[in-house]
Design a protein around this nucleic acid. Structure first.
Length: 435
DNA sequence: TCTGGGGTCCTAGGACCC
DNA sequence: TCTGGGGTCCTAGGACCC
């Protein structure tokens, strides 16, 4: 078989969190270290378990009752996706210290392209990969299995080769050694149906597949994804990384014009609230919080007037920002002037990760809100934006004739925040009660 | 009105992933 | 190996138009 001559025509890294959810729980609460930890209590089945729990016989999907039987001292916790996604963002940020070319593949995995970075870091690809792995463990308090290969498929083989805490380098010339004993169905992208078909054709191991020639592949009528996997198993680089945008943007602007112009204070403020909400969604998408908030009102004569506010604590929580802006709104608003637009600028953004290294020491109230809005972000991703929205934006959401939005408002748009009282219990129909 | 090739768009279903 | 829900990608086929 003819594999690539060079070891790393491209140097692709795959990083895979070990027992990620359980590891996040341990990282957050060091007293759990060394104990059998299981998450998934809210669904009554194990979603993720520490290696201590795995050694005691706990498996994915095992009912809680059975877990207690096989491992009576298991620490069983409900899933806390807000925390897991926070650790996930931190993971990406650490990898980004070494390369901007990263694909955020899933909550506990990413790919990174190290090609061309030997000069910058003045060392080999292997040493760069080792340094990334070391910083991940040091800064996150959990282990990762890391694989380096000439493409994504081989990098995946490498990271799976030794788990947990694995570190596997597969230069193109050594690929065949790693594929010889690997069942073809273990390859990323080859599932049960295709491996059954391959087995019928006499292809049992990944090496069997990689050794087939192009004519055989064409005659066997494989679709594009399988032809690409076959190429990558031979050492070619085919599957591009789907690059995830950097999160450290400088500022976020949200503005909206409405017609006709109006002097209605409540309406203008609700428009501004809606912009703040949208800007905060953006900030949280990027894992950032603002230290400075500016808002402005544009008059029907196209002049505009605004105010810049410095926050004591970096925020990406709309209710807090809306409250602060509300306290300063009348410094800008005049009841005799008709307005045609509002806008908000969030600037001096800081990464939530950096700003929250002392995350669990922050004030309870804001921390509670952060959890609420992480949950809302999750619902937005799942059910579409503005499934839930804050009370002061309700007028803006419900008046399509002013904003040009479609008139129909889906049933699941529930008004969850009554007024601006501080602590609410949100009745989110899909999740039950969320605090 | 018919024949026919070729393009675009949409949908359904299969396969696979986390 | 199974559980389960949600999402993406690809392909094939149908409808439609020129």
């Amino acid at each position: 078989m003819q594999f690539s001559v060079r070891s790393f025509p491209r140097a692709i890294l795959h990083v895979d969190g070990d027992a990620f959810f359980a590891s996040c729980e341990v990282a957050r609460n060091p007293r759990l270290r060394g104990k059998p930890v299981v998450t998934g209590k809210e669904r009554n089945i194990a979603a993720s378990m520490s290696y201590e729990a795995k050694r005691r016989g706990v498996t994915r999907g095992m009912p809680i009752g059975e877990i207690r039987r096989v491992c009576p001292d298991a620490v069983i916790l409900p899933s806390d996706y807000e925390t897991y996604s926070l650790y996930s963002r931190r993971m990406y940020e650490i990898v980004r210290r070494f390369t901007p070319t990263i694909e955020e593949y899933s909550i506990d995995e990413c790919f990174a392209d190290l090609t061309g970075l030997r000069r910058l870091h003045k060392t080999s690809y292997e040493n760069i990969a080792a340094a990334i792995k070391k910083e991940l463990a040091r800064d996150l308090g959990m282990t990762f299995s890391v694989g380096l290969g000439p493409n994504k498929v081989i990098a995946k083989v490498a990271s799976k080769f030794a788990k947990p805490d694995g570190f596997t380098i597969i230069p193109a010339k050594k690929i065949h050694r790693f594929l010889a004993d690997l069942p073809v169905g273990k390859i990323w992208g080859i599932g049960g149906s295709t491996s059954a078909y391959l087995n019928k054709l006499g292809v049992i191991t990944a090496l069997d597949f990689a050794s087939k020639d192009r004519l055989w592949i064409e005659q066997s009528r494989f679709s594009k994804p399988y032809r690409e996997i076959w190429q990558e198993l031979r050492g070619d680089f085919v599957l591009e990384l789907e690059l995830s945008p950097r999160r450290d943007i400088g500022s976020i602007i949200k503005s909206r014009t409405f017609t006709p112009p109006t002097a209605d204070r409540a309406f203008v403020f609700s428009q501004l609230s809606k912009n703040i909400e949208n800007a905060c969604i953006r900030a949280r998408e990027h894992g950032m919080r603002a230290k400075v908030v500016a808002f402005y009102l544009r008059t029907s004569e196209f002049s505009h007037k605004g105010l810049e506010l410095c926050l004591a604590v970096p925020l990406a929580v709309p209710t807090e920002i809306i409250k602060i802006v509300g306290n300063n709104f009348d410094k800008v608003y005049r009841s005799t002037i008709r307005y045609r637009a509002t806008g908000v600028v969030l600037s001096s953004l800081v990464a939530s990760g950096a700003a929250t290294l002392d995350l669990f020491g922050e004030t309870g109230r804001i921390e509670g809100m952060r959890t609420v809005f992480d949950t809302i972000d999750m619902l937005d991703r799942r059910y579409g934006k503005h499934t839930v929205f804050v009370g002061s934006s309700a007028v803006a959401m419900a008046e399509p004739q002013h904003t040009g939005e479609r008139a129909s408002i889906p049933d699941r748009r529930r008004h969850l925040f009554k007024g601006e009282s501080k602590r609410q219990h949100l009745n989110i129909p899909f999740l039950g009660k969320v605090k």
